[in-house]
Simulated scan of single mutants.
Amino acid sequence: MKYLQYCYENGLGPDPNILQARTFAISNHQFYQTLSMLTDDGYIKGLTRTSTKSGDIWTGLDQLSITSSGLQYLAENNMMKKACKTFKEVRDWLPFV
């Protein structure tokens, strides 16, 4: 989703050569399942799955985009990471009682 956020913020379309399982060092199955879950949860849009007798055909990688829910998720997740880091630093500063 960070890549799609980057594309959104810079007015770019996603590059299907970047959006590949090997970019993330995962299997094709895991890659498309993850994209499917992100679509189902409303974080991204544009992916289409067509089921055939020989398996699923996925299209739309060049049309993927992040949704406002996806942007909100990334913003909240980033804030939580910063808060956790701050709490860990504060904990390290406090003397043991």
Rank of each mutant, 00 (worst) to 15 (best):
F87N: 08
C7L: 07
L94T: 06
K45P: 00
A83R: 09
G60P: 02
C84Y: 10
S65Y: 06
Y73G: 07
T39E: 15
W58S: 07
Y73H: 14
W93C: 11
S27W: 00
V97N: 15
K2S: 13
K2G: 10
P14E: 11
E76C: 06
N17A: 10
L35R: 03
R49Q: 12
F96G: 11
Q20W: 07
L35A: 03
I44G: 04
F87L: 14
L61S: 05
P14R: 05
M37Q: 13
G42T: 09
D15S: 08
C84A: 14
L12E: 11
S51W: 02
D92W: 05
P95L: 11
Y73N: 08
L64A: 07
T23N: 02
G55P: 01
N17P: 00
T52Y: 06
Q30H: 01
L12K: 11
A21D: 11
R49N: 08
F24W: 09
C84V: 14
Y73L: 14
R22I: 10
W93A: 15
F96C: 12
G46C: 11
F96S: 14
S51E: 12
P14W: 08
G55N: 06
T50P: 00
Y6G: 03
M1Y: 06
W93N: 09
Y8F: 08
V97H: 12
L19M: 11
W93R: 13
L71E: 13
Y32N: 04
S65W: 02
S68W: 05
G11D: 08
G11H: 04
N10L: 06
M79N: 12
Q72P: 00
T59D: 12
S27N: 00
G42E: 12
I26S: 00
V90H: 10
C7N: 11
Y43H: 12
Y32R: 02
A75Q: 13
K88V: 15
T34E: 04
Q33V: 05
D41E: 15
N10S: 07
D56Y: 01
P16N: 10
G55V: 04
K2F: 05
Y43Q: 12
I44N: 02
T50E: 14
E9P: 01
T86L: 15
K82A: 15
V90Q: 12
Y3P: 00
R49K: 10
Y8E: 14
T39I: 06
M37E: 15
E9L: 08
G55Y: 01
K81Y: 09
F31T: 01
V90A: 13
N28L: 01
S69V: 02
K81N: 06
L71A: 03
Y32E: 03
M79W: 03
K81T: 08
T50R: 12
M1V: 12
Q5P: 00
Q30C: 02
G70Y: 01
N78M: 06
D15T: 02
Y73A: 13
Q5M: 05
M80P: 00
G11K: 02
A25W: 00
D15G: 05
Q20P: 00
E9T: 04
G11P: 01
N28W: 03
T23G: 03
F96E: 14
Q33H: 03
L94H: 05
M1S: 14
M79R: 11
R91F: 13
D41N: 09
